[in-house]
Nucleic acid binder design. Structure first.
Length: 255
DNA sequence: AAAGGCCGCAACCGCGTCTGC
DNA sequence: CGCAGACGCGGTTGCGGCCTT
């Protein structure tokens, strides 16, 4: 949650993100997408490493993120998927629109794992196996920590790729313009004024407007195109906002 | 009311994988 | 084919806040 803010050797900031940093990151990604996480903080005016920015965006700032309030259905899905997939949190998250792997992982460790343990403990209560600490730990390694049920593992691709999944995985990443409460909350973080620094910002080297195109690492998930071209978007002001805006998904050919 | 312990969760770290050259 | 750079993932850490004593 709140690590002591500090700077590492390279002068990059670490620890908890400030609202100001959030605004900068959000404003930049919303406008230009994440064509290269490594370079992004430089252009966004952030003293953070790309990894940190990526994590912050994916786990906290991204639109459509649901936070807390797990439904019974979601929890059951997590439990079932975990049984099948093991600790493949990203795969599990893909089945739960709006949930991040980090959050699911946390929720698993803090709630579901204990709950399951309790349940299985109750079930085992009558059995003679009382050597919980040792046995349980060993078992945990097998079924929870590394935990892929090899029998079920055969069905993994089906589960992951199934387009008919009750909880469509696509919805989480592509439905940018959907406005649930969380989206509104996240979007509320930034205002038009927050783009001001981007307008004024001069990258350390190269041409701000062309360099992204020259990068072989150009990366823009379909999430990020929508806000630039969607007339319904609060950020659409009738003209192209982003140098990337005219690129179609076909051009990107990323997925 | 104060102190100590525990819990939840955001963020960091390190490794594996992917991609381009 | 090997190397390097970037990304993605899972495990772990550590602080703030809540709970218990």
């Amino acid at each position: 949650m709140v690590r002591t803010p500090c700077c590492d050797k390279t002068g990059l900031k670490k620890g908890a993100w400030t609202p100001e940093e959030d605004r900068k990151l959000m404003a930049y990604v919303t406008r230009y997408g994440c064509w290269n996480w490594r370079q992004l903080p430089k252009y966004a005016g952030l003293q953070r490493c790309g990894k940190s920015c990526r994590l912050r965006w994916l786990n906290y700032l991204r639109p459509n993120i649901k936070r807390g309030n797990y439904t019974k259905e979601e929890e059951e899905t997590i439990i079932n998927l975990h049984e099948t997939l093991g600790n493949r949190w990203s795969a599990i998250a893909a089945q739960l629109p709006g949930r991040t792997d980090n959050e699911i992982k946390n929720h698993w460790h803090t709630n579901l794992k204990k709950r399951l343990k309790k349940k299985s403990g109750e079930a085992k209560e009558t059995s003679s196996d009382d050597d919980l600490s040792q046995n349980d730990k060993g078992q945990e390694k097998d079924t929870e920590e590394t935990g892929i049920n090899t029998q079920n593992a055969a069905t993994i691709p089906e589960i992951i790729e199934s387009p008919t999944s009750a909880l469509s995985p696509q919805a989480s990443s592509s439905d940018f313009s959907t406005t649930d409460n969380t989206t509104a909350t996240n979007m509320d973080l930034i205002s038009d004024d927050d783009f001001a620094f981007l307008e004024a910002y001069e990258p350390p080297s190269g041409n701000f407007w062309t360099e992204p195109f020259l990068s072989d690492d150009y990366f823009m998930p379909n999430d990020f195109l929508a806000p630039s071209v969607d007339p319904d978007s609060p950020f659409f002001d009738g003209e192209i906002l982003s140098p990337f805006a005219f690129i179609s998904m076909e051009d990107c050919n990323l997925y």
